[in-house]
Write a protein that binds this DNA or RNA. Structure first.
Lengths: 214, 214
DNA sequence: ACCACCTTGTGATTGTTTTCACAATCCATT
DNA sequence: AATGGATTGTGAAAACAATCACAAGGTGGT
């Protein structure tokens, strides 16, 4: 699948790429330079054919009879995920969750940088959260231009989420990661990803009920 | 699909139940007692047949020609998700993310209660985080029995996650919600759910790269 | 009691994702 | 340069999930 045009890549495939990145990173640190799909998949609890199929959507990265060059594949996955772009992130809502995310080490590790926090609580404005300053939401547009941020993370109450979303879009953000438990209406060209923390734990709760019931 | 035996319910179906719960809750608060699948689905941006199919896995809750009784369906979904059980949660790791989750209003709203935090940092032991006390990890087993907790949430570094998981299982927890970016090995009977925050934002980053590249 | 209308519940269909299985091909050794 | 052993890349098959389309069954009006 070298040439494409507009191949549709399964969402599930993209979700697995960060896992591949992590395993490769580990092997890389251990000084291992070549890895087979079988070993890598075993590490992740998936099948080797799924791993190979996933990678095949993006190109031919392996060497038959040998496996994959760790640092080469690492570079490829970084590029696919945009990790080579050093994307900057704005977090809107400097509450518990927002500030926790601002300090989340997983971001830096994946080429992402939380560059500013925004809130409307005057008591918080001007404070530093780790190395990140908290600005008033009214400065969103200015700061976006100044700091070159691309992704807005919404850690705000559901009741104001749609309203803030419109501000975010007006400010020129192209991608939104929404933690508010509400369906946001956005124009076609905006990339929206919802993260609903309640889903995960209710899924657990459901499985608990099922298991104990049987 | 009234009788079953062991019908397999799609994971995707279970993930949508919390959404249904929210919409129903809103309608309930507005005093609306009957709702059609069409209206409910429109609210969520899915098809009405998907909603009906999802519900059909659990029983026949609707009335043909009319729709669904809001408070009745609400009760059913609560039961399916185990929200009627008032499940108690232990959070292991009283860092930024752990304490943020301890105060997350979404839990209480869905019949879940964070009952204790655990850490190994002596400076944190005994402190209150909101209404929740922080205990030393060595007390996990005692406190579990004392407080009747069922679900363990892991907000700890990946490097210690497997080790802590074994403690958690030894303490008798049956369900684990894991935020550490690592694959945990658990026995068959343990219910494990991984929540990888990096996946969401790297998905966004990937879509950004694709869109701008085309 | 009948009719017109509405909405559910669900087989059948279509679409998507995973798994299978093997030809293609690369490496190492002689 | 030929052979044996290994592992990729990928069509084809299977499994899974979403959508369609309509019979079944309910409501309200006359």
């Amino acid at each position: 699948m070298l040439s494409d045009g507009m191949v549709v890549i399964p969402q599930a495939t993209i979700s697995r790429l960060p896992l591949y990145f992590r395993v490769l990173n580990e092997y890389n640190h251990l000084g291992i330079s070549v890895i087979s799909s079988e070993e890598m998949a075993g590490n992740l609890g998936i099948t080797s054919s799924q791993l190979r199929k996933d990678l095949s959507y993006f190109g031919d990265f392996g060497i038959r009879g040998t496996g994959y060059d760790v640092s080469d594949l690492l570079k490829q996955i970084k590029e696919i995920l945009g990790m080579d772009k050093n994307r900057r992130i704005a977090i809107i809502g400097a509450g518990k969750l927002g500030t926790a995310l601002a300090g989340y080490p997983g971001f830096k590790m994946h080429g992402l940088e939380v560059t500013a926090l925004f809130d409307i609580d005057e008591a918080k404005i001007g404070q530093q959260e780790g190395k990140v300053e908290i600005f008033h939401l009214s400065e969103l547009s200015n700061k976006k231009r100044e700091l070159g941020m691309e992704i807005a993370v919404l850690t705000i109450p559901a009741s104001v989420a749609q309203q803030v979303t419109e501000l975010v879009i007006k400010a020129g953000f192209k991608a939104i990661w929404n933690f508010a438990p509400v369906r946001l209406e956005v124009p076609e060209h905006i990339i929206l990803q919802n993260e609903d923390l309640v889903v995960g734990i209710l899924t657990l709760s459901h499985h608990l009920s099922r298991k104990l019931g049987s």
